[in-house]
Simulated scan of single mutants.
Amino acid sequence: MAKGEKKRALRGRAGRMKGGRGSGRATAGHVRLWGRHPVEAALMNPERKHRKLWATREGIDSLNGELPPDFPIEFAEVTDLARLVAKDAPHQGLVLECEPLEGRFLDELATGDPAHPVVVLDQVTDPHNVGAILRSAAAFGAACIVTQDRHAPPESGVLAKSASGALETVPWVRVVNLARALDELAEAGYWRIGLAGEAETTLAEALPAGPVALVLGAEGEGMRQNIAAHCDALARLPISSAIESLNVSNAAAIALYATVTREGSDVTSI
């Protein structure tokens, strides 16, 4: 059956959104994602368990690939979907409710490959920033991101939209104790570099040829003292004095690029 015919058949099976209204909140224990890239990536992720998709016909047509047979879907108008998501959220005609992803373990992912750095976030709480860091981590081939299970945002539509699909492709490790996780990374052979604007050494000077874990602190406050003490080196990005600091997601993107393109490393591709 051709792609267009499959979608027409899917339309025939789908129901209509009852009453054209939604609560605006996900069912307890579930996550609500919106926008073409986050929804499409979640639908393609075999590790993601889905509950229901609400969509406009144009939203369905925008998807690449096909939905599984008998996938639970309800068609709705744009204004109806707006009631299912955060205010003014750019849902692009697609809203997916699903279960959170299963937790991942650091020892599975920190394999010591110099081509795939680890990103450690110390109390970075803004979902826009974490989403953007996930997107950069995907672009530059990071092995995973690591956060505390507390003091970090949960999976959400806002975070997934900022990640533009990377929430489904970059492993996210949540740990109880971030300092202990840094110790585990050291035991696995990673050189732990904390980004700090006051450091004398630049990131380029601090980068070794081997595996690297980049550690970034909270928006505005930076790394906590205990986390900085668990780094092998502190380094700064050599930015102009015209600006005091960079947003944490911008700093992460620059640091990842510098890491995977450093001289003297055996990294040949991302």
Rank of each mutant, 00 (worst) to 15 (best):
L101P: 05
K6Q: 14
L185R: 12
A89Y: 07
K18T: 10
S156E: 03
D266L: 15
A186S: 14
A188V: 06
E108F: 02
R150S: 15
D266S: 15
G35H: 07
E244Y: 01
A89H: 11
A132R: 13
R13F: 02
A258M: 15
S241G: 15
R236L: 01
G189L: 02
L106G: 12
L43S: 07
P46N: 04
G20S: 01
A218R: 13
A2C: 05
L33K: 05
A76G: 06
L185T: 13
T169M: 05
R51F: 08
S62W: 05
G35P: 09
A253K: 06
T268A: 14
L195I: 13
E244R: 01
E200A: 09
T125M: 11
H30K: 11
R236S: 11
Y257R: 11
R13G: 11
G65K: 08
A26F: 03
D88G: 06
E244D: 14
V212Y: 01
R25H: 09
S269D: 14
G141C: 00
E47M: 10
G59Y: 03
R16M: 07
V158D: 12
A76R: 02
L182K: 09
A196Y: 13
D126H: 09
P153W: 06
T201E: 15
D122W: 12
P117N: 10
